[in-house]
Nucleic acid binder design. Structure first.
Length: 362
DNA sequence: AAGCTTTGCAACCGCGTCCGT
DNA sequence: GACGGACGCGGTTGCAAAGCT
């Protein structure tokens, strides 16, 4: 049944990518932008299927990817998000713009699941992180299915996104949290300068390697945009990501990633801002002075629309585009007071659980 | 040092969804 | 509305590196 796999053609190469292939792919995407993956193998001459190209790009070559060493805050955030969203790694990844869904998924499966299991073993009950009866399936079901009987998938997802947003706002508005950002997954720091610094500190180690290989390849940035909607500032952004190697970590695969706690607080504040479209407040400057791409396009995934729109750095479709349009979610940001009132009605009890979870886990 | 086991991660596979016809 | 192509997601696999005996 169904259509045949896209890669069952003969002569389609599988397995690890070689640096040469990476270079070809990066070169092509620099020139044409990501997307239209079907055409990539034919146009580049790569003996790879379109899927493989897309995957290689999104998980490894895409600029702005941070690799290795997940920080404590990232861990916490993943745990929270996993609890809220279940195994929707793409959605989770959209809240951690520098991490890929694959990375997060792997990290969850290899580290966090075990960690949680250990911690759950002695005392069961306070929070099960959504573990369901299957043993391996960890999802929002355990937390939400009780209160939300059989619903459409999109509805449940919407629910979790709303819940997420509410909670984040609640935490941000809480005065205690402002004094204790280290323990706050959604730091309310809103320094766009800091964001700018963070972004410029973040490079895909692999991309840097490719960058070195490609040294001198980039001759005329103005011609390397895929279409007219890419403006010069976004190209600068791309160039920074690809070709400006900061003094820090430049190791390849498996390196420490060069992340610092500084990066994290910034990431998280960015995340918070993204959640509510606050980025729109002062991101105009970023377009020209930072490596943060705030571009937003309509996401293919309606269920992830909220997160994807506001966290465009993780949206591969946006990588070479800039300021095409602002998402509705940003245009229609509710007044803060309204949101505050709204969330206060519901979120208090949910927070209790999360805080307990944190205390228990760390 | 050699062999075996475990771990971590890149990549693959199959399915679901979107979108154009 | 049905159909098919393209894309994206989540689960799973395969393999190299690390750890252990």
């Amino acid at each position: 049944m169904g259509r045949p796999p896209c890669c069952d053609k003969e002569g389609v190469k599988k397995g690890p990518w070689t640096p040469e292939e990476d270079i070809i792919l990066v070169s092509y995407i620099q020139e044409h932008g990501p997307g239209n993956w079907r055409a990539v193998p034919t146009n580049t001459g790569l003996s790879r299927c379109s899927k493989s190209c897309r995957l290689r790009w999104t998980n490894y070559l895409r600029p702005g990817i941070k690799r290795g060493n997940f920080t404590e805050q990232e861990e916490k955030m993943i745990i929270h998000l996993q609890d809220l969203l279940g195994n929707r790694w793409a959605a989770i990844a959209s809240y951690l713009p520098q991490r890929t869904d694959n990375d997060i998924k792997n990290y969850w499966n290899t580290h966090l699941k075990k960690k949680l299991k250990k911690l759950q073993a002695p005392s069961s009950g306070v929070c099960n992180f959504g573990e369901t009866g299957t043993g391996t399936e960890i999802g929002p079901g355990a937390n939400y299915s009780g209160s939300i009987p059989v619903r459409g998938q999109w509805e449940r997802r919407l629910q979790t996104d709303i819940h997420m947003a509410k909670r984040a706002l609640s935490e941000a508005l809480s005065p205690e949290n402002n004094n204790n950002n280290n323990n706050n997954n959604f730091s309310s720091s809103t320094s766009t300068k800091a964001i700018a610094q963070s972004s410029s500190l973040c490079y895909a180690s692999s991309a840097e390697n490719i960058a070195r290989l490609l040294k001198g390849w980039m001759k005329n940035p103005a011609t390397n945009n895929k279409c007219s909607r890419t403006n010069s500032s976004s190209l600068t952004t791309q160039n920074n990501n690809f070709f400006v190697v900061n003094g820090g970590d430049t190791a390849s695969k498996g390196s420490g990633g060069g992340s610092s706690s500084n990066d994290n607080s910034v990431e998280l504040s960015e995340t918070f801002e993204s959640l509510f479209g606050l980025e729109s407040l002062d991101y105009s400057s970023n377009a020209t002075t930072t490596t943060t791409t705030t571009t937003t396009t309509t996401s293919d995934h309606d269920h992830d629309q909220f997160s994807h729109q506001s966290l465009s750095p993780n949206d591969e479709n946006n990588v070479f585009q800039e300021n095409e349009s602002k998402p509705e979610i940003i245009e229609d940001v509710m007044p803060f007071s309204l949101l505050e009132k709204w969330l206060l009605e519901e979120v208090a009890c949910q927070d209790q659980k999360v805080i307990t979870t944190d205390a228990k886990f760390f």
